[in-house]
Design a protein around this nucleic acid. Structure first.
Lengths: 215, 215
DNA sequence: TCAAAAGTGTTCAAGGTACACCCATGG
DNA sequence: CCATGGGTGTACCTTGAACACTTTTGA
């Protein structure tokens, strides 16, 4: 579960209460029940930590299956990326905490590499899809959005160009409302929302486009 | 297992000899052993059909886990994409056969949707990575390569532009050798090979690049 | 009036597409 | 010499980046 908090991309981890790796931080998860698919399962697991309605996007990441990834009998894990908009602050249980993905504590098992894979997946998809909607509140200013993108991507994304790129892709719609300007003045910002819902690939500049006539 | 055969993207299927779905076409696969990870397992399974050295690329696709995807106790499947260069014609067992991915026969279980997902994954990655190397022979002419790309992508890719795009990305190296011209004449084509090995992302024009100074 | 923040206009560069044109070979 | 197929040159278009400039607010 990833969220941009305090201008930093963070992941929700849970401190293990059992051996092995007692006390280390680990990803939430659990066993798959016979009557559910893996996505239903991960939503059920996460529901124990947060309100699942706060999950804007859930997608499979990869299967981790190395025989020695955990001590004892081999455990096959299907990892997911789940995204929470930055305006919610879920009530999380006592033994869980948010941690910056670029400054992780010592984690249990192979969970660090899973988190890093998730981070990379998010970074890619932010660029060529509309996935930003899952990190942003329903309404936002462009400068707030650029802060989110900057935090998630790990480098500065200017509001100017972000605005233009997303607008050109038809992803932004102005709500008409304005955000009040801060105490130090400045022009009030217009509020926008993402058009459509659900993730879709939006970068039409992918190479090897079909020939013009057939597009 | 995907291969371009006869200018068509095809998948290797195996005719089921057991109920349920006796006689239908299904993807090769099998149970995961306790001492192997999923990739090792799929390579072992495929080794029963072809020479594994012919697999130029193997990557995880997704987990399919719907409780009713197969009759009886639920089976969780981790699907893979495996690519075979077009110049090899593996000896396959009697009960297997190649089928065009765009004209599949009736398949067992959810295997049709798995194949279509694999096709879409391949199409995406052909565009922004060097994955073409896994579909092409070690040496090839540009026009042969454009036929491969056209078959895999499902639309015409012209040799002219394919040549330029791949060259600009530094993916092509001329071997110096020439292919003989056909019986109807024509200038003999130069032979090329892909530089490097293994898949890598090559489209540097992905959007939201880091600012110039930090690149 | 000035500082600060938002937003727009303009220019530039990168990279894919289209298409005309030239090259080399077989018959 | 001509048909055929390979290869190159060039103009164009789309799209993102950079940056100057304008707009709107609070103090």
């Amino acid at each position: 579960m990833l969220q941009v908090r305090c201008d930093t991309l963070q992941v929700l981890l849970w401190r293990r209460a059992l051996d092995p790796h007692l006390g280390r931080w680990s990803l939430p998860g659990g066993r798959l029940r016979p009557d559910e698919d893996v996505e239903t399962s991960i939503r059920r697991q996460l529901a124990e930590k947060v309100d699942v309605r706060q999950l804007q996007h859930v997608e499979q990441l990869a299967v981790f299956s190395a025989p020695d990834r955990v001590p004892g009998p081999r455990v096959v894990a299907t990892a997911f990326v789940a995204l929470v908009p930055s305006d919610v602050d879920p009530e999380v249980p006592e033994d869980t905490g948010w941690h910056p993905v670029d400054d992780l504590p010592r984690t249990a098992f192979d969970h660090e590499s899973i988190v890093l894979r998730a981070r990379d997946r998010l970074r890619s998809k932010l660029c060529y899809t509309n996935l930003g909607f899952a990190l942003a509140p329903a309404e936002f200013t462009i400068s707030a959005l650029s802060a989110l993108y900057s935090a998630a991507l790990g480098y500065k994304v200017t509001a100017t160009n972000l605005q233009r790129v997303l607008a050109r892709r038809g992803l932004l719609s102005a709500t008409g409302a304005m955000a009040p300007s801060g105490r130090s003045g400045g022009r009030p910002a217009a509020l926008y929302s993402f058009t459509g819902d659900g993730m879709q690939v939006t970068d039409p500049f992918a190479v090897f486009r079909p020939p013009a006539g057939t597009r």
